[in-house]
């Protein structure tokens, strides 16, 4: 299995955000009146316990299922994906949606003479 070395601080932050995402997903599902199994069926998940997993803050909703997931819970797919991105890839979200352009880096090199 591939394994990446993780910064513990970053890993903890990732974990926290995923738990938040899980709670948000669960609230959406419950708001839509769906069971985990019903949601999984609508999203064409191969095993419904995956819903429980992501609602517990472990793992993430795959990109390819986000549109169906959003529709199942009655949410705009774009907004759904954007919210998940904020949880799952906060830096990318910041770059795409909130961050001001960074100043251009000066070209590398050193002064000669």
């Amino acid at each position: 299995m591939p394994r990446t070395a993780a910064d513990p601080v970053r890993a903890a932050e990732t974990q926290r955000l995923r738990r938040e995402a899980g709670r948000w997903l669960k609230s959406l599902r419950e708001g839509a009146g769906l069971t985990q199994a019903e949601l999984a069926e609508r999203v064409n998940l191969r095993y419904y316990t995956f819903v429980s997993q992501v609602e517990s803050g472990i793992g993430r909703v795959p990109i390819e299922t986000q549109a169906l997931w959003a529709e199942a819970v009655g949410m705009d797919p774009s907004e759904f994906a954007r919210t998940l991105l904020r949880y799952y890839e906060p830096e990318l979200y910041r770059l795409l949606f909130t961050a001001e352009p960074r100043p251009k880096a000066k070209p590398a090199g050193r002064k000669i003479g």
């Binding site: 890993a11 995923r18 995956f50 517990s56 472990i58 793992g59």
Partner: peptide, 30 residues
């Protein structure tokens, strides 16, 4: 699977699940 975490859970319907994650929290096995 070399230095992973094992987390046990249970769906709302009572079916148990378990995930094996790497140290980044990414799921390797469900």
């Amino acid at each position: 699977l070399d230095g992973v975490d094992v987390v046990f859970g249970k769906s709302e319907a009572g079916d148990p699940w378990c995930v094996v994650t790497d140290d980044s929290g990414e799921v390797l096995l469900h």
